[in-house]
Design a protein around this nucleic acid. Structure first.
Lengths: 240, 240
DNA sequence: ACCTGAACACCGTTCAAGT
DNA sequence: ACCTGAACACCGTTCAAGT
């Protein structure tokens, strides 16, 4: 629980005082989010885990919103950018998207917040630049360059947000039984396609699952989406 | 502020007591989220806006998580499902996606949470059924049916989550100047494509904007994404 | 510069008690 | 059945004061 125990049980300092850094605070915050979930992060709990008073955090991280922005930047920088040269533009998109999903999958409790903060920051510039450059070289220009760029980032990061969304609150609840009971209770005529594809979709499809992507990943669907996306962009390139 | 004023200024009841219903609570909660933002919704504030004690809400709505789930269901049910017959499958997806974006665009502060809760519920069954049915008739089956379904819902709802994400906290901040200053400060060689497309992307592209989709919608990019998505799915159908 | 310690104005939730 | 009223265990943030 206490990741940086500077206080002995009797309250005296165990080590010479080393000033906190913003990096320390970001590290500790990310560790708490990864461990206990996004909603469990509090400035007070974070301070306790670092062995300081809550107000000490405000010196380094501004406030909670700014701290979370720094945490998101840290995670964004984990995403590897494939080299521009020697890579087909469609492969570049697939590789980047796959790595973005890998990174956010390792911080699943942050994913939804991360995507809701897809805004301008110092560390977003490089990812934006490379993505724009790749699409520009592929032949997109003007409005279609903007739209292709937004399609790529919106689809990839948006998907990831949905996939790693939190499990329903009641972890002990028997969702499988509940789901199948509800399907049985629903008029047979209303949901025939779900019924005839039940093993295929149950707990594996958006809106028909009860586990998050952390527990039940959607690898195949994500790859399929990336492939559809690049195929679709290529088709737009030919027609436009 | 007080949407359901049952108390006179002197504290006596203005009307005969009408029991609250869960629907009342959901309505009032959605109104608060739409008006003041997602983070401004509190059980205590909601109770005050309805003229009751906080604990009264727990009788009808369980707790805050369950109340938010009900609010999301309410919004989900606003999405119109196009008729199955007489509609090309690609048109069906475009029409459904456009309406989903319209509905969530009218509740922009809920959008991010909504997408993080794309899980099973009574009201999600019909949207899931129709989407599966449309794709099934289009020719997808087995794994590719699952993947196509997830691609459609993940791309559409994920996008919407990103587009309507909240504005940065500091509303008074001069983002445009800050952005352009940062671009100027960044090494020219690092972001050439952004620089040469600056008017095109500034405040209009994911990770390069400082206003939410509520203030600066991304209509053209969303339509482009829907078209790429359906073109890509069609290509997968032919090849698989 | 960096942190303590206390204070302020909030939260979500529970529960006995009322009607 | 439905709500009051109070209580409990939390929050984020500020600010004077210390070192």
């Amino acid at each position: 629980m206490v990741a940086r125990p500077q206080l002995r049980p009797d309250g005296t300092r165990a080590t010479a005082r080393v000033p906190l850094s913003p990096e320390d605070v970001v590290d500790a915050a990310l560790a708490l989010v990864d461990g206990d979930g996004f909603d469990s992060l509090s400035m007070r709990g974070l301070a306790k885990s670092m062995g300081v008073y809550p107000s000490a955090l405000y010196w380094h991280a501004g406030n909670k919103d700014q701290l979370l922005a720094l945490v998101c930047q840290r995670v964004l920088e984990e995403i590897a950018l494939p080299p521009l040269d020697g890579t087909d533009w469609q492969d570049w998109i697939v590789t980047m998207g796959t790595d973005a999903r890998r990174v956010l999958g390792s911080h699943p409790h942050l994913a939804a917040y991360f995507v809701s903060q897809l805004q301008i920051s110092t560390s977003s510039l490089l990812l934006a630049e490379r993505t724009l450059a790749v699409l520009s070289r592929a032949g997109f220009c003007g409005d279609s360059l903007l739209h292709a760029y937004n399609s790529v980032l919106g689809s990839i990061f948006g998907w990831i947000s949905g996939e790693f969304a939190a499990d329903p609150q009641d972890a002990g609840f028997a969702w499988r039984e509940h789901f199948e009971a509800e399907l049985r209770a629903t008029d047979k005529q209303l949901v025939p396609t779900i019924r005839s594809n039940l093993p295929l979709v149950a707990n594996h499809a958006f809106m028909l699952r009860w586990s998050s992507g952390q527990r039940v990943p959607m690898n195949g669907s994500f790859d399929f989406m990336l492939r559809s996306l690049t195929l679709g962009l290529a088709a737009q390139l030919d027609s436009g």
